[in-house]
Amino acid sequence: MKANVKGIGWVTSGGMGYGRNSDRFSMDYAILPRLTRAMVFEKPNRNFGRMDEYSRLGLAAVSQALKDAGLHEWNEKRNIGVIASTVFGCLHTDIEYYETVMPQDGILASPNLFAYTLPSSFLGEIALCYGLTGTSYIVNEQTHTGLDGLKIAMECIACQDAESMLAGVCDLGSPELLGMEERILPGAVFLVVEKIKEVEPTEYGQLTMDHNGDIRLNDKEVGDLKSLVQMCLYNLNAGK
């Protein structure tokens, strides 16, 4: 199973960026930037203001990836899907919502917050914003490599469900209130992967997946999504 990497975008503690813009990519446990509409969109976006933080994070990273792949502008809806891995999903929003439920027997429960208490809600925002009608859903993996979404996206391309897919991770990190021990790198990172149309790989490289689900980039083994992005960016810079 093969696919080309066509674009990469991210929002991490190191900032927001995309590959061909020569932005520096780093991912650690530091605090994520607080996203505003103006950072993500040049023009007004009526939905951004009402979104929860998790949705803003995912949408911003996808926006960067689409920009990198030259797919951010559109006139007609497109058969592109989004498969995103997450560990904590929208738990921060769940907490925020539940705190509106507890007083006064739920009379003050917020309908706007409830709409974002599904980890997949932001995929709807992405679909709406960029006219994407393809297969889109969330996977919660136990291995925490961040690669399960990419594997599914590659399968979608192999099965001719779509020619281009977005795949990546989106996590705000563990909510403090729950006192969980799980440590996950906060941030959102998305790749645009596409069906191979030309013999030569793109500047980022060519992905292959074997029968066991192991992923390689230009024949080099890939351990997790963060290292995959680093390998892609290395290839891009080496080719300049």
């Binding site: 904590f88 859903y137 969330i138 996977v139 919660n140 136990q142 969980m180």
Partner: peptide, 23 residues
């Protein structure tokens, strides 16, 4: 966590590979 469900079932049946949850 939404990954709790596949974790519980994987353990219950001693499955050889870890499962995933779809949301």
């Amino acid at each position: 966590l939404l990954s709790a469900l596949p974790g519980i079932i994987t353990q219950k049946f001693g499955l050889k590979r870890e499962g995933i949850n779809i949301s």
